[in-house]
Design a protein around this nucleic acid. Structure first.
Lengths: 202, 202
DNA sequence: ACCTGAACACCGTTCAAGT
DNA sequence: ACCTGAACACCGTTCAAGT
């Protein structure tokens, strides 16, 4: 048929990203495919390759959108709390909520391994670092006597821990069976972390 | 051709699991497929379905083998250390080493989402719980005044944190770039955890 | 210039047919 | 009884051909 410029490149790109997000929430990780995304926006799979290099680049864009949305959730959590301890708890809970309510999209950020030869663009790394920065600040308020490298390390440790609790908790990978209250675990984790952190960092 | 009983069902099963492990280490997660496993052991894909219900069950068996091997690594770490604090550090480092040196196989345990309708057999959950138990004991020695439920929660928190540091560290998902010394992070993480834990648990 | 549709090289899975 | 090979329904990706 060769439909003629009904949509611009940018429009097709945006439509594809949106369609991918819908498919992820309705059919999960396994449901995502170029052919389904294409047909959802009324195009052929081939068209997607006019606009994205390949599926990995589409996924990268979906992940970028996820990071933006996660940023909003975490920003909100910061605004709702005043004390730095409460802010960190809020950030961790916001992360858990986002993971739970957007499970497939959140999983896509971690379970999809990009090919090694594809190195992520700077603007993507910037998004991650911006999120990271939200966590550093409250930590600096709680314990002001550390070096920048120590804050980086402490933030890395704290955030990886929050992430780990979300991952193993939401997937029940530790086989604790029954109802795992990830929220309680996050609470216990952050509080214990701060217990140690407020006294110093090695 | 219909080759006649060259191998028993159990032998084919064992060969397939071993072939899958080899493919994972040589070609990574994406390289694993029923057709490749089958051809690696000199059979047709169809034969695999005489011996496994489907690919997910083969993966389950590979994961079970991974858990067994991980158990040995962690057992060794326990034996090499006497003080419970040192034992926990050793366990965490053993986990990190296993993840690093068997990256694809380790990833398979977490990035492959089993279909929801497939619930894991009891013997698999038992393997996970056995690993879990290795971590509980040292914790009990460090702080003997908690309830069983509190130990369970503390262990869950500690192990999820170790796992999170491994996952985000080995994948560089936090985009800290350069050389991330996951070993240092594990050290800092466990020590800070124990700092809080030795004083109590909420 | 834009898009299609067929093609290629792969998948997981099933099952009639062969020995 | 054991195993194959073809078939089916899917993939990601490319690219000549159509408008």
């Amino acid at each position: 048929m060769a439909r003629r410029s009904e949509h611009s490149r940018d429009e097709i790109q945006a439509m594809a990203i949106q369609a991918a997000i819908t498919i992820l929430s309705e059919q999960g990780l396994q449901g995502l495919s170029t052919r389904k995304v294409a047909s959802a926006i009324g195009y052929t799979a081939g068209t997607l390759y006019l606009v994205f290099k390949n599926l990995d680049e589409l996924i990268l864009q979906v992940n970028a959108a996820s990071l933006d949305e996660l940023h909003v959730w975490m920003q909100d959590a910061l605004a709702k709390n005043k004390a730095p301890q409460a802010q960190l708890l809020g950030l961790a809970h916001a992360y858990l909520s986002f993971a739970r309510e957007n499970f497939a999209r959140w999983s896509l950020m971690f379970t999809h391994q990009m090919p090694v030869e594809m190195h992520l663009p700077d603007w993507f790394h910037d998004k991650v670092r911006t999120l990271f920065a939200l966590v550093v600040k409250p930590l600096q308020q709680i314990n002001a006597s550390l070096t920048l490298e120590q804050y980086r390390q402490a933030t890395h440790v704290l955030w990886s821990s929050v992430h780990g609790v979300c991952e193993l908790g939401l997937n029940d990978k530790l086989a604790l069976g029954g109802e795992i209250q990830a929220e309680e675990l996050i609470d216990a984790m952050v509080k214990n972390f701060l217990n140690g952190f407020s006294q110093g960092w090695e």
